[in-house]
Nucleic acid binder design. Structure first.
Length: 412
RNA sequence: GCUGAGGUGGCAGAGUGGUUAAAUGCAUCAGACUGUAGAUCUGAUGUCUGAAAUGACUUCGGAGGUUCGAAUCCUCCCCUCAGCA
């Protein structure tokens, strides 16, 4: 097995930019396009590593910022690195902390499009880096491109992401440019630090090479997105991450952004899109040649009582209603499912759907049994992974567009 | 039968003369959620009109009564629970 990171393209859809491939890492291969579940604090909430493997998950996404705060990097190192700590000896990708520049910058649950300076913000951004206030205890911590790289090396993840400034939506072009320029400066510092660390680690610890993805920003401005794409692509990154997407802008805008970016990316490098993954989004991403994407949506929705289904009808207040073409969830908490004998999704082969009725999951959810969260999370991840498997197959058969059309418009 | 406690909106449960159409929780309905400060958050929830209520109407076991005004005070009745016979 190749112990180093590399990416192999395998098929390219004839009528779109969709492609299949394999990302090789020191901890195994990732079949792409791939959905990457998010395990922020070292666990995909409620699921075990074995379950994730059974569900077909190749890559696991962990957040550096959260692990850094708790349990802390020293603990991870003492216990043999993040892979061993988590009992996940497969590919691992870590976020840089960049997203917290965005998410901690605003008070909890505030609307997405408020102005920049708000009370309750837990971050202070400067050119040097970002000062975070821990959401646990208020203590202050500084993240810089350099220490983010060091942290990710210490965690030992297979794919690192360069520290970036995740631009919120709705900002002016001037603000977006400032944020993008900062991301670019940070990208250079990230690369440089990453190389230093690679050299020192390979010489001193014979450690396998860790990959680094550079992050594109530029908000919803065409010239900025293009500039960022060209800039990030021109450096020696192992892959490209697309950030600042789905931060409040609409789906149409996100698609426009992808349309600007996609043609400018080096074909031979894997592209990861950060933080997107509603069912209909998946087709947009894959259609623009995105190879992997992480998203909390399947697991978070599961905990809120939503189950993915291709079924286009939903019981609402005692009546069966046609869902919107991009709506793929049912709310299992509704009383309407009290006696529903069928599985969450009639075509799903997951453990939940093979063994339990909607009524049972509804019941467990209403009485807040922990098993409910597991059953729903299991199902939603299975649903995503099956979807991606179908998509990969369709690409190999040059029928990605038919697959997309079937999912988005020909449901029944 | 005696003694004591009590009967409040779908349920539990505050309130003991006016700011009470009635706290709070649950339930129900609706909305939000996309590199997880989230097993979370927001709103609605007597009826009717209305885009909206400082609008109208009907509510706190039942029937009367006192009062400018009652879920709250008085009388009678019905019912529930606990203890004792």
């Amino acid at each position: 097995m190749n112990s180093r990171f590399c990416f192999t393209k395998t098929y390219k859809d004839a009528r779109s930019c969709a492609r299949t491939g394999v990302i090789h890492t020191p901890h195994g291969d990732i079949e792409t396009p791939a959905f990457v579940p998010v395990g922020t604090q070292g666990s995909v909430k409620s699921l075990s590593p074995e379950e994730l493997i059974d569900l077909g998950t190749d890559l696991f996404f962990v957040n550096t910022y959260h692990i850094y705060l708790r349990p802390g990097l020293e603990t991870i190192e003492k216990l043999g690195g993040l892979h061993r700590f988590m009992h996940w000896d497969r590919p691992l990708i870590t976020d840089s902390g960049g997203f917290q520049v965005f998410s901690l910058a605003r008070p909890k649950y505030s609307s997405k499009n408020d102005g920049e300076e708000e009370k309750g913000s837990l971050v202070k951004i400067s050119d040097e880096g970002v000062e975070f206030q821990s959401h646990w205890d208020g203590s202050k911590h500084v993240f810089t491109p350099e220490n983010s790289m060091q942290f990710q090396w210490r965690l030992g993840s297979d794919i690192h992401i360069a520290f970036d400034d995740c631009t919120p939506s709705g900002v002016s072009q001037k603000q977006a440019k400032a944020s993008m320029d900062r991301t670019h400066r940070w990208a250079l510092r990230s690369v440089s630090e990453h190389k230093k660390l690679a050299i020192s680690h390979e010489l001193s610890a014979n450690r396998s090479y860790q990959a680094l993805y550079g992050s594109i920003q530029g908000s919803t401005y065409e010239d900025l997105r293009k500039e960022s794409s060209v800039f990030i692509s021109s450096f020696d990154f192992d892959g490209i991450a697309i950030g600042g997407v789905s931060v409040g802008e609409g789906k149409d805008e996100m698609e426009k952004v992808l349309a600007w970016i996609a043609p400018l990316l080096p074909d031979e490098k894997p592209r990861h899109l950060l933080g997107v993954g509603e069912i209909d989004d998946v087709f947009t991403l894959v259609g623009y040649g995105i190879d992997s994407f992480d998203c909390v949506q399947p697991t978070r929705l599961a905990r809120m009582g939503f189950a993915y289904t291709k079924d286009c009808y939903q019981l609402k207040a005692d009546s069966l209603k046609l869902k919107a073409h991009d709506d793929f969830v049912i709310d299992i908490s509704k009383k309407a499912y009290e006696h529903a004998s069928g599985p969450l999704d009639p075509r799903c082969f997951c453990y939940t759907c093979q063994n339990f009725s909607r009524a049972y999951v509804h019941h467990l959810f209403k009485v807040r049994e922990l098993f409910a969260y597991r059953l729903l999370s299991l199902h939603n991840i299975a649903f995503m992974n099956t979807l991606l498997k179908d998509i990969r197959q369709s690409i190999r058969e040059d029928s990605f567009l038919e697959c997309k059309n079937d999912w988005l418009y020909n449901r029944f």
